[in-house]
Write a protein that binds this DNA or RNA. Structure first.
Lengths: 226, 226
DNA sequence: GGTGTTAGTTGAGAAATGAATCTAAGTGGC
DNA sequence: GCCACTTAGATTCATTTCTCAACTAACACC
């Protein structure tokens, strides 16, 4: 290996909300180092197969979890000698947001969901990577529409507010929240659809407007992490 | 070259303010491809020499321009087949902010400063990278202390406000600006030091508080691009 | 000492925010 | 069928925050 040639990997931080707390999806490693340990899904970037690192991330996430995330964004690149016992390495980290319904245990028995808050015991620098992803998601949550990707296809405003509150760790004023959602102008009511099965007034169901449903290009989003 | 082995480079977007407009520092390429064209300073990451990609960026910036930037932050990683005629490649991009005084032409004759606003004719995907850096700087300018790194060691509040206004492209209310600076609590007046040499009331000189003068760690900043 | 120019502060009016209240729309008890 | 209960969603209004303009301050120059 020439001195300018390097092994490049990607790691994916797959986040979801469970019991009103952020959880990260981890898999048991099959190979050394750290065989048997819980770690982020990751793998090698293949210049001959992958269009770029984002498609490498999507490929690896799908190969390892069979999940196609509606939101996948580049987080940062981690490099150095300390992060892997085998020596200097580089990894482009991505983070993905999926609704809890996509991670139901019966369909994905290999995925372990771990709360991100007291997070410990991860191999490599995966704890740093997860914390970076969590910080980014929480930071963007205060002024963007990011959290809608943690909800399912359709959701009510009270549900969405609860998601924001879980991420930000504080309660939000109902009027302010609805005003902000109105300003963002990214939601549309699902005509005629209301919540069902509760013993009180059912809430209006909303969904992301079509224009925001498909992913923006990676660079657009990586650049304006806000 | 095995299929999982890749050439990894870094590119540095060195930004400064000249004539109230953002400019990017470019160098003439010595080698093919695009020999002779103006391009971002960049080079190979060397696993045997560089601690990580950030120190690679600092090393390359210094080797090519003799500049040590007080602010250097990871921007994003660009990859794919289209960005380099030689084939699939990957580059970790960093951006740096320096005061105009550090770029005076007599000391750096090899550096060409180009306004970032109508930016065209750059090789590779360097235009995308510069635009990403500019978008990031502008975006962070609205709520952070980033722009102080475009000023010199000491500066007055009216000078700093002019820098913010140049970046944001709009005028800022004087009271709001001073209130925000006060809240940020990152500046301290230089005792006894005031602006000199103008025919009116001289302004108080300020500087970044010591705690903010040294760089934070890359990951800290890359994670919270806000 | 007066004048012009820019620094920095003050205060009134406008706008945004947030807590409490009120009305609406369902279910279930009786 | 009517009433009580619960939660959705709108409204009200006090409070805070922002904005603009005017005002005072400090210097150089004439």
């Amino acid at each position: 290996m020439s001195r300018e040639t390097i092994i490049c990997t990607v790691d994916v931080v797959l986040l979801s909300l469970k019991d009103a707390a952020l959880h990260v999806a981890l898999l048991r490693r099959e190979h050394e180092p750290f065989a048997g340990a819980l770690a982020l899904p990751g793998g090698y970037v293949r210049a001959d197969e992958d269009e770029d690192t984002e498609s490498a991330a999507a490929r690896i996430l799908f190969e390892k979890t069979a999940i196609v995330s509606p939101y996948l964004e580049q987080l940062a690149t981690f490099s150095g000698r300390a992060r892997d016992p085998r020596g200097w390495s580089i990894s482009v980290a991505y983070y993905a947001l999926v609704p809890a319904s996509l991670l139901e245990l019966e369909h994905h028995p290999e995925i372990q969901l771990l709360a991100v808050d007291p997070l410990k015991g991860l191999p490599f620098d995966h704890r740093d990577i997860v914390q970076a992803a969590v910080a980014r998601v929480r930071s963007k949550s205060s002024y963007s529409s990011l959290p809608v990707f943690l909800c399912g296809e359709q959701f009510t405003l009270p549900q969405l507010q609860a998601v924001y509150e879980a991420l930000l760790g504080e309660s939000i004023n109902k009027v302010s929240f609805r005003r902000k959602m109105d300003e963002l102008d990214i939601l549309e009511p699902v005509q005629g659809a209301r919540e069902t099965g509760r013993a009180n007034r059912p809430a209006q169901l909303y969904r992301l407007k079509q224009a925001y449903r498909k992913l923006l290009s990676t660079t657009d989003r990586a650049i304006n992490p806000d």
